[in-house]
Amino acid sequence: MLAEYLATEGFETDTLHDGEAGVKAALSGDYAAVVLDIMMPRLNGIDALRRIRQSSRIPVIMLTAKGDDIDRIVGLELGADDYVPKPCSPRELVARLRAILRRSGDAARQSRTTEPAALGPIRVYPEQRRAEWEGTPLELTSAEFNLLEMLVAGAGRVLTKAALCEGALGRPHTRYDRSVDVHMSNLRQKLAAFADGQAPIHTVRGVGYKMAFE
């Protein structure tokens, strides 16, 4: 049903019915994004995502059971870019897909002339969708890159969770949505690996986040 609806919205889709086949297709290089269900035979969605993230940054949207916060958080921690609870609205899935593709593809094409943004040892290249720490590439998911780009552009200023959710994930922030927090935790850990254990992302309790180097 979802594949048929996506086709009417202009997407070309393939449907696979077990996790192992899904991982193989996701890593083939033939697709722009993955919609990954948690409940699949042979290999569940969590394990499939873990395998995908071992070698690919392809955007991934997880389909999770409504109210299942554990699967949702684990998926985000493993590198999922977003999630949609089941039973899901096809229109919502389309909106999430377009938001992710716009940021990972269209945004890059629209910013060919954008100069790299620099903050301390970090350099962000919007046109190439890549970032570096003192010349060493950072392995970031699409959502993590979007957050880092916003933090660098707003260096020293506090960015609210609402602004980060809208700008990086392409959707409004809701009261119990922890997506930004989990993505930010993943990003902080990756930066801390280069910064002697201290990432330059600071939490402003009750408001949001900011990036600053001492």
Rank of each mutant, 00 (worst) to 15 (best):
V180W: 01
T136M: 10
A212N: 13
A48I: 12
P121C: 01
G135R: 00
E12S: 10
F194G: 01
D196E: 14
Q110C: 08
A99Q: 03
E139V: 03
K190T: 12
A3L: 02
A25G: 05
E144K: 00
G197N: 00
D177P: 02
K210M: 10
S111F: 04
C88F: 15
K66V: 10
L2V: 13
R157I: 03
Y209W: 04
Q128G: 13
A163N: 06
S55F: 00
A199Y: 00
V60Y: 08
K24E: 14
Y31C: 09
H183V: 09
L2I: 14
Y176Q: 10
T141N: 03
M40I: 12
E20V: 15
T114K: 13
Y209N: 04
L93I: 08
P90C: 11
R96A: 07
G45R: 00
G206P: 11
L97Y: 05
A153I: 09
T114F: 11
Q128K: 15
D47S: 13
I122R: 01
A26R: 07
L119R: 02
R96E: 09
V94W: 07
R188F: 06
G135S: 03
V207T: 14
A212Y: 12
A193E: 14
T203P: 08
G45D: 00
A192S: 11
E139Y: 01
K24F: 09
W133E: 09
L27S: 08
F11A: 06
R130Y: 01
E9F: 06
H183C: 08
A33G: 10
A99N: 05
I38P: 07
I70H: 09
A195H: 02
D106Y: 12
T8N: 00
D106P: 04
L187I: 00
R188Q: 10
G120S: 05
V207S: 10
A95V: 01
A95M: 04
M211Q: 04
N186F: 05
A153C: 06
T114R: 15
I100S: 14
L97W: 04
P87C: 10
K161N: 06
L159E: 07
C165H: 11
G19W: 07
Y31E: 07
S142H: 03
G208K: 01
Y209I: 02
G29K: 05
I46W: 04
S104V: 09
E144H: 02
T64V: 13
C88Y: 15
R102S: 10
F213P: 00
Y209M: 00
N44M: 07
L164R: 15
P116M: 08
R72T: 11
G208N: 01
I201H: 12
Q110Y: 08
L16C: 05
T8D: 07
T8V: 00
Y31G: 09
A95H: 06
L6V: 08
G197E: 03
N44Y: 04
L140V: 04
A131R: 11
I201N: 13
V158A: 14
Q54M: 09
S104Y: 02
I61T: 08
P116T: 07
E144S: 01
L138H: 13
D71A: 10
